[in-house]
């Protein structure tokens, strides 16, 4: 009998655990049922509900790119009940996954454009999916610039991938840490993301900016982008309201006439300006 109960998760096995930063881990997840693996398809920007049976479900983006087949990855920080329980699991353990939910980054519409990715702290994971998706289709895009900042050097996630991006001639990577967060060996920038953004002043000409970070970073980054000449239609972000169901029924991610889960999580600044600031 086909299971139509929309609350029943896929069964996933944790294939690999990567320690990214203090209290931050990445899980590589594989479908335990081959049919599920075959049926499953997602696009960059989408998210899911990850569950530890007995503790509940938690919402995070799919942090891997759809171009990397056969698995999905999620990166999370131990913060609440479910993420603490997740952090206690290891390779071989089973968790639940519902998804994919939500809309996507419209990367097909970005063909022939420059891409500017700006991320702060634990907000690199949703960005990582779209970054790898675009890098795997590198010929579709012109310049790719990534600006990533974290509180301290230790808090930078995906350190090995940052190195990979740094070494690629077709990616301009800028990393920064907040003042005081640097180590003696640190050779990146020191300063808050919006400040570093004004310093490097990327051109807005034919460029899409994708911004993801804590509310305070977002708040100070948008005006810098506007000053650089980015229009509201060319600035994208992904919102993260509290969610339970993931498909527009439980009501809690409702902002204005949209549900972040169903109509988002990806919004342009233009769309965000039409919403009440309840995110």
């Amino acid at each position: 009998m086909e299971n139509k109960n929309i609350y029943v998760p896929y069964k996933m096995k944790i294939e690999k655990v990567t320690e990214e930063a203090p209290f931050v881990k990445t899980f590589r997840l594989k479908f335990m049922n081959d049919e599920d693996a075959e049926k499953f398809d997602f696009r960059t920007g989408q998210f899911g509900e990850y569950s530890v049976y007995g503790e509940g479900e938690s919402t995070f983006c799919i942090a891997s790119a759809p171009t990397r087949k056969g698995y999905i990855e999620c990166t999370f920080r131990e913060a609440g009940r479910v993420t603490k329980a997740l952090a206690n699991l290891g390779e071989g353990d089973i968790i639940g996954f519902r998804g994919p939910y939500g809309n996507i980054f419209p990367i097909d519409e970005w063909k022939g454009k420059n891409l500017l990715f700006i991320a702060g702290g634990i907000a690199l994971p949703p960005m990582r999916s779209v970054i790898w998706n675009c890098l795997d289709l590198r010929e579709n895009f012109k310049d790719v610039t990534i600006l990533y900042g974290a509180r301290s050097v230790a808090d930078l996630v995906y350190k090995h991938e940052l190195k990979e991006w740094e070494e690629r001639p077709d990616v301009n990577l800028f990393t920064t840490v907040d003042p005081g967060g640097e180590t003696p060996e640190w050779d990146g920038k020191v300063g808050f993301v919006p400040t570093v953004l004004s310093e490097i002043a990327p051109s807005s000409e034919n460029t899409i900016a994708i911004v993801c970070g804590p509310p305070i970073m977002i708040k100070y980054t948008f005006p810098v982008l506007e000053k650089l000449g980015f229009t509201d239609e060319n600035i994208f972000t992904t919102l993260e309201n509290r969610m339970k169901c993931g498909f527009g029924k439980c009501g809690r991610c409702n902002v204005g006439k949209v549900f972040v889960c169903k109509d988002g999580p990806v919004f342009t600044l233009k769309q965000m300006k039409e919403l009440p600031a309840e995110y």
């Binding site: 049976y53 503790e55 439980c250 009501g251």
Partner: peptide, 29 residues
């Protein structure tokens, strides 16, 4: 129609339930 989803665990088994919730609660969002 707003609701919450919670797990109730007893030993090695349990249920996942949904229950009424309210946008009037601070915890809702």
């Amino acid at each position: 129609g707003c609701f919450d989803i919670q797990d109730e665990n007893k030993g090695n088994k349990g249920i996942r339930h949904r229950c009424w919730d309210s946008c009037g609660f601070g915890l809702f969002t």
